[in-house]
Simulated scan of single mutants.
Amino acid sequence: MSITATEIVLPGTVEPEGLLTTHRELAAPKPGQALIEVEATGVSFAEQQMRRGKYYDQPAFPFVPGYDLVGTVVEVGSPADAGLVGKRVAALTKVGGWASHVLLNSADLIEVPAELPADAAETFVVNGITAWQMLHRYAKVRAGQTILVHGANGGVGSTLVQLALAAGVKVIGTASARNADQVTALGATPVDYRGDVVAQVRALAPNGVDAVFDHVGGPGIVDSFNLLAPGGTLMAYGTASTKDDTGNSRLPVLKLFARLLLWNVLPNKRSAHFYNIWAGQRRASTFRRKLTTDLTAVFALAAKGDLRPQIAARFPLTQAAEALTLAESRTVTGKVVLLPAQ
């Protein structure tokens, strides 16, 4: 089968309107590969950083962005994978997802429940894996605890809120005042991030919180750590506060690593971690097993209705520039989704 794929290419450090729409013929899948017709892909913070050349380990320009996707298997390269044909699957790609068709390793595909539409499932791929692993594999939250989620209206943030509530955890969530109602609708207690966050959180949790999930980094990470109760855990998973800084893109991350390491060696009865979804990928079988287990658990909750997909907006793939602009505006709740078939 010969397929001509439509792809969105990031040619360099450009504004969103500098994205290019190209077409490329894909070869038939090799043994161990599957050809996916992409039904939904998304705009995450990673793509926002990549267009600035500031994502920690992004490839050299030009490349096709797209951190994750959901689609249907249309062809496989191995008879052993024939059962995949026609199935809706999800995949974590890091790059390459902004396309109408992609070739992926069959072992990297995770089946999507029939109850979940493609756009709904898309909101839970990278966001769901990230939130689930931080909550349950690292912070190990327990029912009755209280956590603080920064950016509670965002893609990862809104998923964190819902997963925590499903586990019986109380959630305080930072957001702008205009997004407070959305945070309340998710089930969290909103805190205005433009105000005195420490005072607001202390008023709600005088003894501190059991975990903080911080994608912002920068100087505010100190407040996040200081808001922890004894035995609490700080999960840092980004440096959004430095997204517009010039200079070495790795320096903010390295500074954050150093600070977290220092906190962990000091006798303070609290812990601090940096979450990287790709940690452990050198052991491919273990890495894939964890991704499959965790995303399957998230999908199961979504299929039951315990998680509600937070779709900020839907755009055709060819309107990726408009989608990226909206995602970067920080005015929306949830994830901006690209639909290649539109």
Score class of each variant (00 low, 15 high):
61 F>T: 04
128 G>Y: 10
142 R>M: 12
63 F>N: 07
32 G>Q: 08
265 V>C: 04
86 G>D: 06
182 Q>S: 14
12 G>A: 11
338 L>D: 13
134 M>Q: 14
228 L>G: 07
305 G>E: 02
216 V>C: 07
16 P>C: 03
195 G>K: 08
232 G>Y: 00
305 G>R: 06
104 L>W: 07
51 R>K: 06
208 G>A: 10
34 A>F: 04
14 V>G: 06
220 G>W: 08
240 A>S: 12
67 Y>V: 15
149 V>E: 02
155 G>S: 08
60 A>P: 05
196 D>N: 13
73 V>T: 06
275 Y>Q: 13
75 E>C: 06
12 G>E: 01
318 T>C: 01
292 T>M: 04
340 P>N: 07
255 K>E: 14
293 T>Q: 15
332 V>C: 10
28 A>L: 01
78 S>Q: 10
32 G>D: 04
56 Y>L: 15
12 G>F: 00
49 Q>Y: 13
108 D>M: 02
263 W>Y: 15
70 V>Y: 02
33 Q>A: 11
221 I>V: 15
19 L>A: 07
150 H>C: 06
102 V>I: 15
139 A>P: 05
20 L>V: 12
179 N>W: 05
341 A>C: 00
334 G>W: 13
287 F>M: 11
208 G>D: 03
337 V>R: 03
163 L>M: 09
341 A>I: 01
287 F>L: 04
82 A>K: 13
275 Y>R: 12
286 T>V: 14
177 A>Q: 15
87 K>R: 15
19 L>W: 09
220 G>D: 12
204 L>C: 02
52 R>L: 15
195 G>L: 12
189 T>M: 13
48 Q>A: 14
293 T>K: 14
245 D>S: 13
4 T>C: 08
212 V>T: 14
322 E>Q: 14
102 V>Y: 03
23 H>Y: 14
271 S>R: 12
110 I>W: 01
240 A>Q: 13
269 K>H: 14
335 K>C: 07
311 I>W: 04
23 H>D: 10
26 L>H: 04
227 L>N: 07
215 H>E: 09
217 G>N: 09
239 T>S: 12
100 S>F: 03
206 P>H: 09
82 A>T: 14
166 A>V: 05
298 V>K: 12
90 A>F: 02
190 P>Y: 05
208 G>L: 00
83 G>V: 07
32 G>R: 12
254 L>T: 11
292 T>W: 01
306 D>Q: 15
321 A>P: 06
281 Q>L: 06
96 G>R: 00
246 T>C: 02
78 S>N: 11
333 T>W: 07
246 T>G: 15
325 T>W: 00
224 S>L: 05
269 K>M: 11
53 G>D: 00
42 G>Y: 01
239 T>L: 11
164 A>K: 06
330 R>A: 15
10 L>R: 01
57 D>C: 08
